[in-house]
Design a binder for these strands. Structure first.
Length: 704
DNA sequence: GAGTTTGAAACT
DNA sequence: CAGTTTCAAACTC
């Protein structure tokens, strides 16, 4: 199980998962004003939903409840978001090539923007089409009458195609086209979306017209995990179910069964109505599509983790982390067996929008259950009926952990307690989800049990582990060496980072799924001791390193804060006033520090030079070998050495022996004998070279 | 690789 | 909250 290490995010992480980076993205939008994107207020507790049916008949209710509670917990007034006639068209094109369209109707606040508006620049990319897999097919995506795209608008379409990383699929690729228009004209605020049903992709639950509650500029923050790539996404907070067509500035959550479709709109005040009428089947479980609008990310569409109510995404207000709750299907009585489950592939999607990139590891709940090691303890395994969600472990012994929702380790996944009960949660780091996906278990499961006949089959598969090979190897994680802590204390970096141990050198490790109970207890203990225990110690400033500083400050006494013992120094930041260090030399003007930096720079330079030299040398050697290696099979005789055959060698040796005999017969002194032999050898070489050159010339002349 | 040093985490 | 102990990483030899 190769974990996507914190550096996994070296590629993805910082760029993709960095919430703050997202926040820094300018959200100004031509004609539409800026987008106020921010997370819910910090420290706002998120009520746990232990009493909430995991899979109600109307899943959207659940989501609304979650959203509602989240909204309550968020406290303050809804965030104001400017919305000006934005339209979100989310289309998914399957085999049939028919898209699903979600439209964010024109707000009407600025209805005056006519189609002939000359302000083309301000509307620049009116549409952004994201196609996942397969060809991009732009079709006239029409809403209600009057929403037809004009030629002008069509010309403003931007298409972004996202190639799936795993071509291993017999299924036809499915496409998700997300189209956004800005300031679309003639759109009535009440314009309903005319769902153009895509083969297997729909956005609503059967018999349940999902009405979009509202839109808010609330940002769907991706956890700035140290291992960002493993974040499970979530957005919570939605208005009540009655808030449908009103301009409630709250985040939009469209709960489709267990699917959650979160749409963000940056333009203000636009009531959004998303109406679909088709059977929910198709969107790839857990897919998250982020669509960046003009000048910044404006839409993030989070497609539920599963078509079956298996996973719920939760964003904890005030938390930088996001959680996913695995939900059993038992309470709803909906079968979720393999025959109907569409969860097959863990699919992290990375959609580059120019403004925001997100990489979201998608993990089917089934994948987790399938990957539970067979050696699980009796307390840790629960296998319900075949049609139900099997649970990783019972979390009921730790109900008290729930209030600490906001402080759970990064990427924690909450799983319901076994037995269909919704009383507890198993806390599973999202990282582990990724790890699980990368394990052999996944491979087996994916090739067998997860192969179902759902609409998912029509979709091209993504990489099994949800990550490309490069991604999985780009973030090496330092293995721990814990011996006494069982990797259940913050001494252990893995544990402290919210990761399971993987490829570590630890002894008696409990930081794994097999000891989830103990792990949960440990987490709770840590949180009890320090609610901030799992939050990053190094705050990230807006710009540069100067604003970064240790949340607690160091307490060094002997290292001068110039060794890696010092957490500040290790994080390559200056000590600050909150540090309690003694003899600190880790400040801006410190000569010691400057010297150290210079030395470090020099060392880096040397390393680079050595690397360059080695590279050059290797290149030269390779080149030399290429030029000196006989080409025996080509027949083209590119090199004279081609002609140094066995026979030639034998002949040469005979010549040399003959010369030796000659010298011996003439009683030449040894020195003279050697000279004669060497001379003969030179003649031989000359003849060989000459012959080779001649042969090569002849060969070239006849174009051989 | 073994031993030492160090400071954060854990404990009292 | 302060002092002490434990622990694992960093460091040295």
């Amino acid at each position: 199980m190769d974990v996507v290490s914190p550096e996994l995010n070296s590629l993805l992480p910082d760029e993709i998962m960095d919430t703050e980076a997202i926040e820094d993205i300018p959200h100004s939008q031509p004609g539409g004003g800026g987008t106020m994107v921010q997370s819910a207020s910090d420290d706002a507790p998120l009520p746990m939903e232990t009493d909430t049916p995991m899979a109600s008949e109307n899943p959207s209710d659940h989501s609304q409840q979650v959203a509602s509670e989240a909204a309550k917990s968020a406290g303050g007034p809804p965030q104001i978001i400017k919305q000006e006639g934005q339209k979100l068209l989310v289309t998914a094109i399957g085999k049939s090539g028919q898209p699903i369209v979600l439209q964010l109707p024109h707000t009407g606040s600025k209805p005056g923007l006519s189609q002939t508006s000359g302000d083309l620049k301000s509307q620049a990319p009116q549409f952004k089409v994201v196609t996942i897999g397969g060809r991009t097919e732009l079709k006239p995506i029409l809403g209600s009458p009057g929403n037809q795209l004009t030629t002008l608008q069509a010309q403003q379409l931007k298409t972004m195609q996202i190639a799936k990383k795993t071509p291993v699929s017999s299924a036809a690729p499915i496409k998700f086209i997300i189209t956004k228009t800005v300031n679309s004209k003639g759109l009535s605020p009440q314009t309903s979306v005319t769902p153009v049903i895509a083969g297997t992709i729909t956005l609503s639950e059967p018999h349940n017209t999902t009405t979009l509650q509202s839109i808010t500029g609330k940002k769907i923050a991706i956890s700035p995990l140290k291992s960002p790539s493993k974040v499970t996404v979530v957005s919570v907070a939605s208005p009540t179910s009655n808030a449908s067509h009103k301009s409630v500035t709250l985040p939009v959550n469209v709960s489709l069964g267990q699917q959650i479709l979160t749409v963000q709109q940056s333009t203000p005040g636009s009531p959004i109505k998303v109406t679909t009428s088709q059977t929910t089947q198709g969107l790839k479980p857990g897919q998250t599509v982020t669509v960046g609008g003009v000048g910044g990310s404006q839409f993030k569409t989070i497609i539920p983790l599963a078509t079956q109510p298996n996973v719920q995404q939760i964003q904890v207000p005030g938390s930088r982390f996001h959680y996913v709750r695995l939900v059993t299907a038992s309470s709803s009585g909906q079968p979720s067996g393999p025959s109907t489950s569409s969860l097959q592939n863990a699919k992290p999607m990375m959609v580059s929008t120019g403004a925001v990139r997100m990489s979201v590891p998608i993990v089917p709940a089934q994948s987790i259950k399938q990957m539970v090691p067979k050696s699980l303890t009796s307390a840790a395994v629960v296998t319900t009926t075949q049609t139900q969600q099997r649970l990783i472990m019972p979390a009921t012994p730790l109900p008290q952990i729930q209030p600490n929702f906001t402080n759970l380790p990064p990427g924690t996944v909450l799983a319901p307690a076994p037995g269909g009960g919704n009383m507890g949660y198993a806390v599973v780091p999202a990282q582990y989800v990724t790890q699980l996906q990368q394990s052999p278990f996944v491979t087996l499961a994916s090739s067998s049990a997860f192969t179902t006949n759902t609409g998912i089959q029509t979709q091209a598969r993504l990489p099994l582990n949800g990550l490309s090979a490069a991604e999985t190897t780009s973030r090496p994680r330092k293995p721990c060496n814990c011996t006494k802590s069982q990797c259940l204390k913050l001494y252990c970096d893995c544990f402290a980072n919210g990761e399971f141990c993987s490829n570590c050198n630890c002894n008696n490790c409990f930081n794994n799924l097999e000891h989830e109970t103990e792990r949960l207890k440990a987490i709770k203990t840590c949180l009890d001791r320090n609610p901030e225990a799992f939050k990053p110690k190094i705050g990230k400033g807006k710009e540069g390193e100067s604003d970064r500083r240790h949340s607690k400050g160091c307490n060094c006494k002997r290292s001068g804060c110039l060794k890696n013992y010092c957490e500040c120094y290790e994080a390559k930041i200056m000590c600050s006033s909150i540090c309690k260090c003694i003899g600190c030399k880790n400040f801006e003007e410190s000569p010691e520090r400057k010297t150290l930096m210079h030395l470090a720079d020099a060392a880096d330079m040397r390393v680079q030079q050595q690397t360059a030299a080695k590279t050059k040398l290797s290149s030269q050697i390779s080149d030399l070998l290429m030029r000196t290696t006989p080409v025996m099979s080509s027949g083209s005789g590119r090199l004279p050495f081609t002609f140094v055959t066995k026979e030639v060698l034998e002949a040469t040796c005979e010549c040399l022996l003959e010369q030796a005999k000659k010298a011996e017969q003439t009683h030449q002194p040894q020195v003279e004998a050697e000279r004669m032999i060497l001379e003969e050898f030179g003649h031989c070489l000359m003849r060989i070279i000459s012959s080779a050159g001649k042969a090569k010339a002849d060969c070239a002349s006849i174009n051989c």
